[in-house]
Amino acid sequence: MSPLSWIATGSLVTWVWLLLGQGFFWRTDQRLPAPSPAPDAPARSPGGPWPRVVVVVPARDEAEVLPLSLPSLLAQDYPGPAEVILVDDGSTDGTGRLAEELAHGRTGLPLAVVRPGEPEPGWTGKLWALRHGIALARAREPEFLLLTDADIAHEPDSLRLLVAAATGHRLDLVSQMARLRVASGWERLIVPAFVYFFCQLYPFRWINRRRPLATAAAGGCVLLRADTAERAGVPEVIRQAVIDDVSLAKAVRRAGGRVWLGLADRVDSIRPYPDLADLWRMVARSAYAQLRHNPLVLLGTVAGLALVYLTPPVTLVAGLLAGDGPAAWAGGAAWAVMTGTYLPMLRYYRQPPWLAPLLPYTALLYLLMTVDSAVRHYRGQGAAWKGRTYARPEAAPDR
């Protein structure tokens, strides 16, 4: 066998292992669990009424999306006591005032808007906002906190189903990865792959096991037991985290809590990323933080992405041009396996299957975004978000 054939075979073996040995990450069947084993059993805390919930929404310059997201929270049909706290994190576009206007005269969950001011040193903006929102929520003595981003729209039964899942299965953290917007051409190409790569890194089946093999959450929608949050020291213990959702899940797990993560059917992100530049900034602002700002991990990631995603089409074409049958066969087979594992995610996002063979091209874009994230870090730009830059934030601290 030629060196090209060995490289192609290595990629094929890697893809067979990913197909069968990485927690079946490519399947999209991890959805919110049924509230109770008994179909006619009431979905509530055992022996009592529906628990009190406080929804905490950190918001910074979200006036564009708030008219679509906030009313969906206020209109929740939750049968127990619940209210919404929106934390205006230093907005300059009238986010807090708009939230109050949207709630004025509306029936549904009550809304409180708080403005904590600029973050203290050592805090990221979102976690600073969550700190104040959670502190205010604790005065209401809730059993659960729903932490949800300002760009997330919820169907009317979203909160009820989340609480039913948490109480029915004794979960401390229930998180759903909101279905991201897929409208522009670049969104269709990049967004499903973003979720696919996340699932590959943190297989949901591994997270949801009673003896978990991985830990993660999706920050856009997190239902959290209030006493577990207090026991875990949240959000103080993760105050510098840019990858705050993974950090939160790890803190809950360290405190002995059970974590569940799945794909959402009733929760959607409405934030638009119409251009490649918008998506590029979204990925690049935190990619190097996920690698713990480690150059060796960056090199390994680049090499891994190249072997796994770029090698199959390259060896297929090179094998055909050079008349190297084994290389072409192994490269083509690896590309076929890769394509097949991507199809379920495209179906979840209601996208055409012809996008699946383009995954190597999308992976190349993600590779370049990751390298750019490192370049920005070493230029002192760090993780930039809405006018704030965190030069050296933490990723997901283990303690």
Rank of each mutant, 00 (worst) to 15 (best):
G21A: 15
L224F: 11
A63T: 06
A287I: 08
A284R: 14
A8Y: 06
G257P: 01
R379H: 09
F25L: 01
V174E: 00
T14A: 14
P360R: 08
S247F: 05
A356M: 01
S36E: 10
R231L: 15
D398Q: 13
A303E: 02
T315D: 07
A226T: 12
R281H: 13
V113N: 12
R179V: 09
A153N: 00
L73R: 12
A306F: 15
W128V: 06
A164Y: 08
A374S: 09
L343A: 10
W335Q: 14
G331W: 07
P235Q: 10
E62K: 12
H104A: 15
T362C: 04
L162Y: 06
V13D: 01
D265M: 00
E230M: 06
A328G: 04
K250S: 05
A41I: 02
W15H: 14
A43V: 02
A214M: 01
V87N: 11
A384R: 13
L136G: 15
Y390V: 02
C221A: 09
R347H: 14
A135L: 06
E394S: 14
A112Y: 05
A214K: 05
F194N: 12
R181H: 06
R379G: 07
R179P: 07
L12Q: 03
R239T: 02
P3G: 12
W6Y: 14
W26R: 01
L161M: 01
G300L: 14
G122K: 08
I238M: 11
W206K: 03
I152F: 08
V222H: 09
A232Y: 03
A75V: 00
T92K: 11
W280C: 04
R239L: 00
V163Y: 03
V234Y: 15
M177F: 11
P353E: 04
A183Q: 11
R258N: 08
T339R: 03
T107D: 15
P295L: 06
W329H: 01
T315M: 15
